[in-house]
């Protein structure tokens, strides 16, 4: 069964005519061509499909598109403003926290959400926040450093 689903993504409203047995991830990538959000495992394990739902990181591969209606969705495409990267994106580049880049949208959004809620996040808090995101390249140290560089907690680098 198809129906119109209204989604608010990166402060814009989209009306998508879609079957209802689809995930938000499928609609983002296939219908709206917002391919910054990646599909890794498709079953909740890896975190590469992370988007923010009302400011909180969630798995878009486990979220029915209809369940996302009426909520504020932010994808990696929504971070840069007027052609300028968000400071967290800059920090990932500066700290070499991106290698193949597959985990990066999820990692960056998770770090972004954490710092919004807790600008003084400690290393331990950062590690807990990203514990649901798998990176197969960096070994996590650089990612933690990148997020930490924007935290106002003591002892940051």
């Amino acid at each position: 069964m198809k129906r119109n689903v209204i989604l608010r993504i990166n402060n814009e409203e989209y009306t998508v005519l879609t079957k209802t047995n689809r995930t938000l991830l499928e609609v983002l990538r296939e219908d709206l061509h917002l391919t910054g959000t990646k599909e890794g495992c498709g079953e909740g394990v890896c975190g590469s499909c992370t988007v923010l739902l009302d400011g909180r990181p969630v798995r878009s591969c486990l979220l029915l598109v209809t369940e996302a209606e009426g909520r504020e969705i932010k994808t990696i495409e929504g971070l840069a403003k007027e052609g300028r990267l968000d400071p967290i994106q800059e920090a990932f580049i500066e700290h070499h926290a991106i290698q193949c880049g597959f985990c990066s949208p999820g990692m960056i959004l998770t770090g972004y959400a954490l710092l919004k809620e807790n600008p003084r996040a400690t290393e331990e808090e950062i590690r807990f926040a990203i514990s649901g995101n798998i990176c197969r390249c960096t070994g996590y140290v650089k990612i933690v450093e990148a997020i930490r560089s924007l935290s106002t907690s003591e002892g940051r680098r």
């Binding site: 909740g44 739902l53 909180r56 990181p57 798995r59 979220l63 807990f128 926040a129 514990s131 649901g132």
Partner: peptide, 9 residues
């Protein structure tokens, strides 16, 4: 349980 992004839902 799992990790924070799953706990959020």
């Amino acid at each position: 349980v799992a990790a924070p992004p799953i706990q959020n839902r």
